[in-house]
Structure formats: C-alpha cells, structure tokens
C-alpha cells in the first residue's frame, strides 16, 4: 500500500487528505470524534490510577501509627487550648468595650466620682428586683448611693457589707424615683412593678406628653442626682375621671444584661423625712 514513486497522483491525494484532516482538527471539527474515542481510554486510565494509588498508599503507609495518634491527640489538645484562649480574649474584648463605654459616661459627667463594680448575683426572690455588686464599705460605698450604667439609671444601694452591696433596681415594686419628662419639663413619680414595667404617675392632666419623650431624674426628694437618663415614654394614658395622667416607660438600661455598673460615690442622699412630719 506504499505510494509508488512513480505515481504522483496517489501521493498528491494522500497529501491533500492529510492536509484536510489537519485543517479539520485545527478547526475543532474533529473534537467530538476524539473525545468519543478517548473517553473509554480515560476511564480505564483513571480506574487503574486510583487502584494503583490505593495500593501505593497501603504499601507506603507509616508503620508507626501510635506516634501519629499521639501527635493527633497533642494537636487536638492544643486546638482546645487555643479555642479556650479565643473565648477568654473575646470576653476581654467585650469587657473592654463595656469599660470604655462606662469611661465615656463618666467623662461626660466630670462633677461625679464613680466606683466601678461587677454584678455578682441577684435576689433569689422572684418578687424583688435587686442585684448584688462586688464592692462594699471597704471601697467607700454607703447606703443610698445611686448606681448607674453607661445607658442610664440602674438604682440605689440599700444595704452594704464590707465587700459587697445590695442594689435596689428602679424596676423593683418598692422603688420610686422623682422624674422629669423632656421636652415638656413636667415632673412625675416613677414606680417599678413585679413585672419589671416602669410607669409614671402624678403627671398633671394639662401636660402634653408624647411617646418618645425622654425621662430623666429630677433630683427632687434628694434621693438621686438630677438629669440621669431613665428611658423614653412608650405610652400615655389619660382617663376622663382621673386626677392625673399615667405613662409607661421603656427603660434605657437592659436590666437582664447588667454586668458592670458605676456607683456615684460623691452623692449624699438627703433624708427629708423629718421635714415631712406634720406634727400631729
């Protein structure tokens, strides 16, 4: 079948056929044909390669499995330790942010002197809303001192030991705070409740209050310093037969997440009870 030297037509036909096939291949027209022809070969090649690789892995597997297990255990222990460190660092970052916010709060009111304290417990009775902080008379804390957080008023100290104090939250049913609403500049009396809801009573009927008005301490009564934020009015109730209006307050402080608080140590609460004695 070799082309004869003396048959130039046969040679030319072969060259034309080869050039045609080459052009078709370069143009990509033969790709499906090649793919179809090569796919069974590739399948067989892949099958053989994976089997060979498995055999190679089995033959070359490290003999000392024990050392690998030990290394694995060490790495796991190191991983657990690093995870613990990450959690501790995240806690420190959170605490740092909180302290930074408290510092900003303290800097905004340079007239006050503060003592920072951590909340270490809550009252076991569900009827009372008190927390216990880790600073006491050894740190200069006294009964009646107001307690704030970076968000606003928290409450006041009702009992002090050498190293701890009990703080009555403003949400406690027994708590009462003289407040002033802004921008209306109207005074009222804020009370807590067993459901932790705050409400303001003794608001004059002619006062024009709106939801969203700010509620701050008024300083009247001498129990708290003035102008500490308490929250915002969420709802005003006015009844035709009532002598006063009442309003519900959304507190600025999240009392379920109290961690660090500031005690205003240079505020001396006034005892005005002798002045209230009618002498009857």
């Amino acid at each position: 079948m070799r082309p004869s030297r003396n048959n130039p037509y046969q040679l030319a036909a072969l060259l034309v056929a080869a050039a045609g096939i080459l052009l078709l291949a370069l143009g990509g027209y033969l790709t499906p044909l090649f793919n179809g022809a090569l796919s069974p070969v590739e399948g067989v090649q892949g099958w053989l390669y994976t089997r060979f690789q498995a055999i190679q892995d089995f033959v070359n597997a490290p003999v000392n499995i024990a050392s690998l297990r030990q290394e694995n255990a060490e790495l796991r222990a190191e991983n657990a330790q690093l995870q613990t460190e990450i959690i501790a660092l995240q806690q420190q970052v959170t605490e740092g942010e909180l302290l930074s916010a408290l510092l900003d709060f303290a800097r905004a009111r340079p007239e006050n002197t503060y003592q920072a304290a951590s909340v270490i417990g809550q009252d076991p009775s569900p009827f009372l809303h008190y927390v216990i902080i880790n600073r006491g008379s050894d740190d200069g804390l006294r009964r009646g001192m107001p307690v704030v957080s970076q968000q606003g008023l928290v409450g006041r100290i009702t009992q002090v030991t050498a190293t701890a104090s009990r703080v009555e939250l403003i949400t406690d049913p027994g708590s009462q705070v003289s407040v002033r609403m802004q921008p209306s500049e109207v005074d009222g009396l804020l009370s807590g409740s067993v459901t932790s809801q705050l409400s303001i009573d003794l608001i004059p009927l002619e006062a024009n209050l709106q939801a969203g008005d700010l509620v701050l301490t008024s300083g009247i009564g001498g129990m708290y310093p003035g102008n500490i934020l308490i929250g915002q009015i969420s709802n005003v109730r006015r009844e035709a037969t009532a002598l006063f209006q009442t309003a519900s307050v959304q507190p600025a402080v999240d009392f379920t997440r109290l961690e660090i608080v500031l005690v205003i140590v240079n505020f001396q609460p006034l005892d005005i009870s002798p002045l209230l004695d009618t002498g009857e």
Binding site: D123, P124, P126, S196
Partner: peptide, 17 residues
C-alpha cells in the same frame, strides 16, 4: 443557695424563677 443567687435568676419564665 449559691446557684439560686448566681445562675438561676437568669432562667426565667415570665417573672417566675
């Protein structure tokens, strides 16, 4: 009592603990 003061007040149903 220690658990009652530190941990359990955070577990609340309505206002009960």
């Amino acid at each position: 009592t220690l658990l009652q003061v530190t941990l359990l007040p955070r577990i609340r149903m309505l206002q009960g603990s």
